[in-house]
Design a protein around this nucleic acid. Structure first.
Lengths: 338, 338
DNA sequence: CTGAAAGCGCTTACAG
DNA sequence: CTGAAAGCGCTTACAG
């Protein structure tokens, strides 16, 4: 596509490029008539200043990157999409450029986070999908750049943590199951390498302990947030421990696999065995008569993360981005009182 | 973050910036020893060439933009995510920069597609989510840029169309329902402003006509791809036309609403009333005992679109990107023979 | 109010 | 094999 440069506009308008630049950048020292004529001509010629040129001239847009650890082909829970959309809109609302970046365990070894940020000229970064011990997580602490990390408790004054209170959320879910009369509750957890799994496991244990119930390690399975793994785990648990009367699952997607296993075992979900999921994915209310689950708002997580990074770029101190990030136990059919 | 420039590296290495540039860009006329030392120093100093500088120097990366018409907070079907991921990976595999852009009916009036492409320095573009009569759709034809459009039949030799054969897919779905013995089949369609809706409507009518059945317009409802609208439409249809024995839905998400309406009407999904959805979303097999649906591969659509645009950028002629984009009727519980 | 000139960080003929 | 210099498209003191 043929690009029109500032010289072309200047020639057409019969002025210098200085004047074109000033007219288009709202400098006061340009006659109204000149400004009008120049903008009119620039518009007509479809002149769009070259970003590289502008950048060299000293004008750069701020840019925030959303760094996704592994962009998978599919996003069953919609978590990544929600975060992406939220971060994007936070940038749009702040007049900041948004750029999508991805990495994976392999490329984390190749290129340092710092070089990645440098090459994309980032002014701030949001990290999502990182596992404990991922190299970039540690590098984020050394990064001299506004940074928000989603779903990993970094405990670093320079980094904004963005996540719901997962311990509390899991505690509430399990406490609810106990209130429903359940006494043998299994935990189908996400990957042990994910910080949220640790926290949800803690909430689960905390609720049981408070009720004077033992925490039986054999009733906790790491199903890596995977539907099929959860299904198989539940099949096995139900076979070995027929006394199980409830499953708390660290994601709705895993809850689906668990529900299927329960039904295949000839038991009735929500009656014989209760199930609570996590996330409240868009289709949750249509599954198994309505999945009882812990809702979290991924869009808002992304949005808050974007805004928190933006504020830091503006020089404000990193506000607590988890404020207003509330979870909510949504009671439907797969687990319910009375 | 402190940026190191080529001068800093040159100074540190005791050579000219010319030599640094040559060493780092693999020019042959640099002594092996100099090259080694310069790269070593550049690496150590975390030197990353400034893209703007490189661009001014004449070296620019190719970039493909994925333009989404409205980035919604949520993506219940996972279609947008799949396309995004596919397009991203096509770019990654081709060594091309990927950038995410969004627009909406309002901003389409403000900025022309051409200016948008110019401002992002695009070398190619993929359009998704556009409705018939969206201004950008017409502007895409005039655009002097490799372009792929998803799910709209553009019929333009310069534009790559990317979509499954929606007429054929719908025809197969309805023909299957007829084979199941259904004789009163309603169509819950997507927005009439979406090209795919038109095509699926055509396939629906085609299948009925072939079987000598009348196409009753009152049995077709535009539910705009929305779960709740589909639910309400189904409630109403079931009330007015109790003889309905099947629903063909233009999306799984809408099928969910329809299934709920059927159950609330005291009828059994898959027995009294059959339901076929569209998309095969990740959770489809867990809903209502398994949703019968037409599968399409969104990731592949995005990937093929990206590759087709890339090929055009390389100067190759625009291959048919829909090749290999197959749909598949997945028969589960909500509609099944015998 | 206008414009010539310097400078931003690179690359690349070109001379040595 | 090395480096001085021109040039890419802008912005912005600065002089007029």
């Amino acid at each position: 596509m043929e690009r029109v440069s500032i010289r072309d506009v200047a020639r057409e308008a019969g002025v210098s490029i200085t004047t074109v630049s000033k007219a288009l950048n709202d400098y006061p020292d340009v006659s109204p008539e000149t400004r009008r004529r120049v903008s009119e001509i620039a518009q007509r010629m479809n002149y769009v200043p070259d970003v590289a040129g502008r950048s060299m001239g000293g004008i750069t847009e701020k840019v925030i990157g959303l760094l996704l650890n592994d962009l998978t082909p599919t996003d069953p829970s919609g978590a990544v999409f929600g975060i992406l959309s939220g971060a994007y809109h936070a940038c749009a609302d702040s007049g900041i450029d948004f750029v999508l970046l991805t990495t994976n365990p392999g490329s984390q070894e190749e290129t340092s986070l710092k070089r990645l940020c440098l090459s994309k000229r980032l002014d701030g970064i949001i990290c999502n999908g990182f596992r404990l011990h991922d190299p970039y997580l540690e590098q984020a602490r050394q990064l001299d750049l506004p940074c928000a990390v989603i779903d990993v408790e970094m405990n670093d004054p320079r980094i904004v943590d963005v996540s719901i209170d997962n311990v509390q959320a899991a505690d509430e879910a399990v406490t609810f199951l106990l209130g429903c009369g359940c006494r043998a509750i299994a935990l189908i957890n996400g990957s042990a390498r994910a910080d949220v799994s640790l926290r949800r496991g803690r909430g689960y244990a905390q609720a049981l302990t408070r009720s004077g119930l033992p925490v039986r390690p054999e009733w906790t399975v790491d199903a890596d947030f995977d539907m099929d793994s959860a299904y198989h785990a539940a099949v096995e648990l139900l076979r070995q421990y027929p006394e199980l009367d409830a499953f708390f699952c660290a994601s709705d997607v895993m809850a689906l696999g668990v529900c299927q296993a329960i039904e295949e075992a000839g038991r009735k979900v929500g009656a014989d065995v209760m199930v609570v999921g996590f996330d409240d994915i868009p289709t949750a209310r249509y599954m198994y008569g309505g999945l009882t689950t812990v809702r979290q708002d991924f869009y808002k997580m992304g949005y808050n993360a974007g805004m928190a990074v933006y504020r830091q770029i503006q020089g404000q101190k990193p506000a607590d981005a988890s404020v207003g990030l509330l979870h909510e136990l949504v009671i439907r059919s797969t687990a319910h009182g009375g």
